[in-house]
């Protein structure tokens, strides 16, 4: 079957197609600017899913129960599965292969979400990731899914969002256990909240640029500041309701509107993570890079086996 390749006269023509709700497919003659921008966005998402799995894996052996261990394993498996799907979508765009993306990630030449440049230092951090970070990621991904103009990404996001919804509800259940638990558990979670609140808020990024092409091309459906504000309005009262303190001395609530206003956000920690200079960036990347190198013999052996099989089939 031959698939007709759609093309556009220029970027204005392409923009009209997007504005009319058009969905771009890999078989299209995709404008280079759109391809590069969307590829970078999906590669960043894929890297973040993989590095997020590595952030959570540290505490899986220490899970305080066998069923909990199964649950956190399944959750981490979901994250790596998302990375797997996203790398395939990104690779199909023809900019880099999956191996190139992974090798650049492990060389420290790629980026991933700020929150995965931090280390989970207690079990409560694992819960803070499940409660705060997964909720932020869920909100962000749902906003991308809403109007996403790139077909393969939208289809994969449908599955990712369904699974992230489970993760978020699991995070809520785990948080409730700590909130209703012993003083040791509550102190642990407050300390974790002190570490993870600002990175979670910063995950949405600084205010979107007025001419952000990802908004114009309907990869993003909401501006960063809109998503960030909705997150603050939801999670400040929830966390306070559970008896925890938001680590923001200047947090205020408008008496008329009831809206919460955080203190001015210091974006320097986020910028540092984008340079792979976050608190745990070096260890996180080095662990993955060392392991990638140590297991190269398996990939080499499979490549040799595949070439031998192809040669045999050709000879036959």
């Amino acid at each position: 079957m031959t698939i007709a390749q759609r093309s556009w006269n220029d970027l204005d023509d392409f923009q009209t197609f997007i504005d009319d709700g058009g969905i771009v497919e890999p078989t299209d003659d995709i404008p280079e600017a759109y391809r590069d921008e969307v590829f970078r966005f999906i590669e960043f998402h894929a890297n973040s899913e993989l590095m997020g799995g590595l952030t959570e894996r540290d505490w899986i052996p220490k899970a305080p129960g066998l069923r909990l261990k199964q649950i956190f394993l399944a959750k981490t498996q979901d994250e790596i599965g998302h990375a797997h799907l996203l790398y395939m979508v990104a690779a199909d765009m023809g900019v880099k292969s999956r191996s190139e993306m992974l090798e650049q990630l492990f060389d420290g030449r790629s980026r991933f979400h700020n929150v995965f440049h931090y280390q989970a230092v207690t079990w409560a951090d694992q819960i803070a990731i499940a409660y705060l970070v997964d909720a932020a990621a869920f909100a962000s991904q749902r906003a991308v899914f809403a109007e996403c103009s790139y077909g393969p990404y939208k289809r994969v996001l449908k599955r990712i969002i369904a699974e992230e919804g489970f993760h978020m509800r699991h995070g809520e259940e785990m948080l409730l256990r700590l909130a209703e638990g012993t003083p040791v558990q509550r102190e642990m979670f407050q300390a974790a909240l002190d570490r993870w609140w600002w990175p979670a808020v910063q995950l949405f990024g600084p205010d979107s640029a007025p001419d952000d092409p990802l908004l114009a091309w309907k990869i993003k459906s909401q501006r960063n500041e809109v998503l960030r504000d909705a997150y603050v309005q939801k999670y400040v009262p929830l966390l306070q309701g559970y008896g925890f303190a938001i680590p923001d001395e200047h947090l205020t609530q408008d008496p008329d509107t009831g809206k919460w206003q955080t203190s001015e956000i210091d974006w320097e920690p986020l910028k540092a993570t984008m340079r792979n200079g976050g608190p745990d960036s070096r260890r996180r990347i080095a662990t993955a890079a060392t392991n990638w190198s140590d297991t190269a013999w398996v990939r080499d052996a499979l490549d040799v086996a595949a070439h031998a099989r192809t040669a045999n089939e050709t000879a036959a």
């Binding site: 799995g53 899986i60 394993l73 498996q77 662990t287 990939r299």
Partner: peptide
């Protein structure tokens, strides 16, 4: 579980993760 995220390729990560969950389920 020590290999979660650190297998030689992503498909292997996913496979090993499933095996680990099965074995823990049998133990339970």
């Amino acid at each position: 579980t020590a290999w979660i995220g650190l297998g030689p390729f992503l498909e292997e990560d996913l496979a090993f993760c499933s095996i680990a969950q099965d074995e823990l389920g049998h133990a339970i």
